[in-house]
Amino acid sequence: MLEVKNLEVSYGQLKVLWGINFTVKKDEIVTIIGPNGAGKTTTLKTIIGLLKEDKGEIYIKGEKVNNLPVHERVKKKIALVPEGCEIFPYLTVQENLDLGAYLSDARKRYKENLESVFKLFPRLKERRNQLAGTLSGGERQMLAIGRALMSAPEIVMFDEPTLGLAPNLAVEVLKTIKGLNETGYTILLVEQNVKMALKISHRGYVIENGRLILSGEADELMRNKHVKEAYLGL
């Protein structure tokens, strides 16, 4: 579904990704872990087209998308739930969700998608006429996820969806993501809660200083000495 080959990305003169390779297959949950500043967000932003790579190739459903702008890549049914949610603060919850269904494919399935988002997050239905900027952190995360689902994507990328959430809420969000995967979404996850993330994932990659240093099955990674020491605090 998603394949990244030899990705190199810089901010100005500063190179932050030094040749990253990975794949996400259909129906998988794949987690990318790594310390702060490793280049995880950069990787996701480059895949969706918000950043331009220096080198390397990006394939979405087998098609090379390097030269497409963001709005064209989104049409390939890939969505990003960005770090920090990035909701539209002065639009209502409902309007935020409407915009998730901006593309014509998604507009056709607006009603059923909206219903399933409200079923997944009844809280959003209660608050639909409220300005999104007045939502709590957890509700914002729900909105960001709901908004992404409104576009009827096949691949969803999550950038630290539990950032700033209380532990029990974080568990809820990751459970939701697991549930989404079970209903047919392919998922690429970036998470700081390494243990919980690996638990729900099939496979994982470890990025440090812009380089891929480890990859493998999720349970294999959990038993890895480096992962244990650096990320699981064991």
Partner: peptide, 8 residues
């Protein structure tokens, strides 16, 4: 940025 993510 978020608008672009919506396909705008």
């Amino acid at each position: 940025y978020a608008a672009a993510l919506m396909g705008i």
